[in-house]
C-alpha cells in the first residue's frame, strides 16, 4: 500500500483536476445566441471578455507571464515578477522596520512590569485599528505613496511581534533566569544567552503571524496608492476587464504568501526546543 504522502498527493491532484474540469465546463462560451440563461438575458447578453475565463485561458496566460516575468514596457505594463518584487520589497522593508522596534520594546515590556503597565493602554488602543485607516494620515504626513504603503505594513506587522515578544520574555521560566543569576550573568548577557533563546519560539510565532498580516495588507494598500505592486496590478487588470490576469495574479498572491510563511516556518523550526 502506498504511503500516506503518496495517497494524499494523488488525492490532491484529482481534486485539482475535478475543480479545473468543473470550472472549464461552467465557463464554456454560449453557443451562438440560442442558449441564453435567464441571467444573461437580464444582462442583455454577454461579451466574451466579461465572462469568467476558463482555466485553460488562465493557464495559457500564466505560461506567457511566467516565461517572461520581468519585462518592463512602461508604467502600466510590467511583468508579474516586477510587480511581485515591488510588493515583497515593501512588505520586507516595513516588516524589518517593525521588527527593529517590536523586538527591543517587546523585551523591555516583557522584562519590566512597570513598562508593561505604562505602555499597555496605548498598545490596546492602537492595535485594533485597521492598518488601512492610517493611510490618509500617512499620505498627508509622509507625502509619498510608496513610503506610506511601507508605513502601513510597518504599523500592521508591529503588534503581533511586539505582544508575542513581551509575552515570551515575561514567561521565561524563573528556573532558567535563576541559572543566569547564579552564574552572575549581567542583564545584557542574560537577555542574549538565556531569555532570547528561551522566548525565541514565541517571538517567531509572532513574526510568522506578522508576515501573514503584512502580505494580506499590502494588496489592499497598493490598490489604494496605485503605481506599482501586485495589489495595483490586480486592480488595474480589473479595470481593463482582463479577468484571466486577475485570476492569475490572485493565484500568485497566494503562492508568494505561502513562500513567506514557509520561510518563517523554517526559521521557527530552527529555534524550537523541547523541554
Amino acid at each position: 500500500m502506498a504511503s500516506l504522502n503518496v495517497r494524499a498527493a494523488l488525492l490532491s491532484v484529482s481534486f485539482l483536476i475535478l475543480a479545473l474540469g468543473l470550472w472549464e465546463m461552467a465557463t464554456q462560451p454560449p453557443e451562438a445566441q440560442t442558449g441564453l440563461t435567464e441571467y444573461e438575458m437580464l444582462m442583455g447578453g454577454v461579451e466574451q471578455e466579461s465572462r469568467v475565463p476558463p482555466p485553460s485561458a488562465v493557464i495559457k496566460l500564466a505560461w506567457a507571464e511566467l516565461s517572461d516575468p520581468f519585462y518592463d514596457a512602461g508604467a502600466n505594463d510590467k511583468g508579474i515578477g516586477i510587480q511581485l518584487a515591488y510588493s515583497v520589497y515593501r512588505v520586507l522593508t516595513g516588516y524589518l522596520a517593525a521588527m527593529a522596534i517590536a523586538l527591543p520594546v517587546g523585551f523591555l515590556i516583557g522584562m519590566s512590569p512597570l513598562m508593561y503597565k505604562a505602555l499597555n493602554p496605548y498598545i490596546q488602543v492602537l492595535r485594533p485599528i485597521s492598518p488601512l485607516a492610517w493611510m490618509p494620515l500617512a499620505l498627508f504626513i509622509i507625502q509619498d505613496s510608496d513610503a506610506s504603503a511601507i508605513f502601513v505594513i510597518f504599523i500592521c506587522s508591529i503588534w503581533p511581534m511586539l505582544l508575542n515578544t513581551a509575552f515570551g520574555v515575561a514567561n521565561v521560566r524563573q528556573d532558567w533566569v535563576n541559572v543566569a543569576r547564579t552564574h552572575e550573568l549581567g542583564p545584557l548577557r542574560t537577555a542574549i544567552t538565556v531569555i532570547l533563546p528561551a522566548a525565541a519560539p514565541t517571538i517567531l510565532t509572532g513574526m510568522r503571524i506578522s508576515i501573514g498580516i503584512a502580505w494580506l495588507v499590502i494588496v489592499a494598500a497598493e490598490m489604494l496608492v496605485g503605481g506599482t505592486g501586485i495589489g495595483y496590478y490586480v486592480w488595474n487588470e480589473w479595470n481593463n476587464l482582463d479577468l484571466a490576469s486577475v485570476i492569475f495574479s490572485i493565484l500568485m498572491i497566494g503562492v508568494v504568501g505561502m513562500l513567506l510563511d514557509l520561510a518563517l516556518g523554517k526559521a521557527q523550526k530552527l529555534v524550537e526546543y523541547k523541554e
Binding site: W176, N178, V179, A198, Y273
Partner: peptide, 17 residues
C-alpha cells in the same frame, strides 16, 4: 547570587536548547 556558590536545583534547570 554569586559564582562562589553553586546550586543544583531539584528540577535540574538545564537550558533545554
Amino acid at each position: 547570587p554569586g559564582l562562589e556558590r553553586g546550586v543544583v536545583f531539584q528540577n535540574y534547570s538545564l537550558l533545554p536548547w
